Amino acid sequence: MRDTSHAVEPGSAAGPARTKGQGGGRRLEAAELLPRQVRAHRSPAEIHSSIVGGALGIKGHDGAMASGAVCPAFAYTIVYVTDVEKAAAFYAAAFGSDVRRLDQSHKWAELESGATTIAFTPLHQRETDGLSGEVQLPDAAAARGPVEVCFVYADVDAAYRRAVEHGAVPVSAPEQKPWGQKSGFVRDMDGNVVRIGSHVRE
């Protein structure tokens, strides 16, 4: 039979956990739930944050995280465009990515772009104008938005030429960067900046 006299029950955000035993056992302080070598380098506030935030991975009887911790995955980069179908076709031709999905409403398209999906959706819709704010495109040739899309290639020069030949607006020809990447910049049909680069060498 398994000895449960010292099994730990997860606590709530409002208080520490308990040890199982006769009479309910004693209450464990939050710090006792961390390994000794970790406790030595954390302040009481950091320890409390770890417990409440679920960083320890302590699970309840149903297998769920006791504190509702989240483990995010970067799933989408969404580009707001004037014409979803044309934008998807442009990206496929200019940057060499296949179109994975074009919704029948023509309000959503996706590229085959690896672990993170690049998607396109209209500039003006309820999700922007009515909920999160109107999308503002650059109002001058020298202006740009705060986010860029970057594609990496084995041959950056060839990829840059292909993009320009298929309608991308040249901004800066590829050059070697001090951080170990070769990259150049173009604009798509809506003026968004796209980086064409190599993998960064360590």
Rank of each mutant, 00 (worst) to 15 (best):
R2C: 06
R2Q: 02
D3K: 02
T4H: 03
T4I: 07
H6C: 05
V8A: 00
P10D: 09
A13G: 13
A14S: 15
A14T: 13
R18D: 03
R18M: 06
T19F: 02
T19I: 14
G23C: 08
G25H: 00
R26V: 10
L34W: 05
P35Y: 05
R36V: 15
V38M: 01
R42M: 13
I47Y: 07
V52A: 06
V52C: 00
G60R: 15
M65P: 07
V79H: 06
Y80T: 04
V81I: 03
D83P: 03
V84T: 02
E85M: 04
A87K: 02
A89Y: 10
F90Q: 08
A93T: 06
D98T: 11
K107E: 14
K107I: 04
A109Y: 01
E110L: 10
S113W: 08
Q125E: 12
E127T: 09
D129S: 13
G130Y: 11
E134D: 12
P138D: 14
D139Q: 14
A142H: 12
G145S: 14
V147H: 12
F151K: 00
F151A: 03
E165Y: 09
V171D: 13
A173W: 04
P174R: 10
W179C: 01
G180F: 11
K182G: 00
K182E: 07
F185V: 04
G197L: 04
S198Y: 00
